[in-house]
Write a protein that binds this DNA or RNA. Structure first.
Lengths: 161, 161
DNA sequence: AAAACTAGTTGCGTTTGTCCACTAATTACT
DNA sequence: AGTAATTAGTGGACAAACGCAACTAGTTTT
């Protein structure tokens, strides 16, 4: 009942995704689409919509005053130019500010503003909540499993530990 | 040892990602970036690079001759116009062809071409292999766990089953 | 002192997706 | 039947993001 070359599915209930069915990258990629859209919707109007970059940057700058753009770029897997643009935006929205590092005048140090700090507080509520909500149909223990494994994957990829 | 407001990290070995640390969406989103880049690199020059859309479309059309664009759009979570453009590309690359459905002359039926079929064969090798390679640092049983859970997530999201 | 490297910026091109309006065909309604 | 409401697909305008490559400037190495 599930052989290759079936009839064109009318209702897509019984569709088989071929090799993608067992391919982790496929699920990461498609689920990414869905979660990202949902998240963007929830962050609508919050100066931080679209892209993991801004959220991560905001939290990192809040937690590590003086952190440098290149460090964040690395953690968010963007190149420096993309990072620079994100920072531009956030500076112009008055969420963070740049200073030239006293140690190394090529480098910058990033600091949170009051508005940024306030936004960070909101983000700390919204973002994890959105994730939980979005994946609420996955039992909690399974979510934990996945998170544990993907955390290690992430750390491996960016070379953290 | 891991309180908020630490010093700016020089080597990012000991960085804490705040709430993102336990947020599934964060890992999905960032890992997506990395896998997608790696996959694109491996598919370079193959008429099917960039985006989950083309790969899924190719395999589905190959497996379900006569499948309709809107079904694929749904499974790949794109809107019809985005889907249409993907199909345009693939038709112009002679991977698939369109026909008007005899049943419903608004609708189309998609069929694979020889070139498309050949490419599908390659893709069936490359794509799962890339995923395995990319995630090879995750023990196999854990990969399986994640796949099982995310498969259900995917199916839930697109309303399969 | 020169060479090599690193941080960040800028411009360019590419890609991707979203929104919206439009045509045409089918189905539902009365 | 005949009209209205849906559905399939198209096309255009638009915005946003990202990577690459070239460039400036400051720092480290030798």
């Amino acid at each position: 009942m599930s052989k290759p070359t079936e009839n064109p599915p009318t209702s897509p209930t019984d569709i088989n995704l071929d090799v993608l069915e067992d391919t982790l990258s496929f699920y990461i990629r498609t689920i990414n689409l869905a979660v990202s859209r949902d998240l963007d919707a929830r962050l609508d109007g919050l100066d931080v919509a679209k892209g993991t970059g801004k959220i991560t940057t905001l939290l990192l700058v809040d937690d590590y005053p003086g952190i440098r753009p290149s460090v964040i770029a690395h953690l968010t897997m963007r190149d420096r130019s993309a990072m620079g643009r994100i920072i531009d935006q956030m500076v112009s929205h008055d969420l963070i500010r740049r200073e030239v590092s006293p140690d190394d005048s090529r480098a910058q140090e990033l600091y949170i503003t009051e508005a940024g700090s306030a936004l960070a507080t909101k983000v700390r509520e919204i973002v994890p909540q959105q994730s939980r909500d979005f994946f609420s149909f996955i039992p909690e223990d399974e979510q934990k499993q996945v998170i544990d494994i993907l955390r290690r994957a992430y750390r491996h990829i960016v070379g953290l530990a």
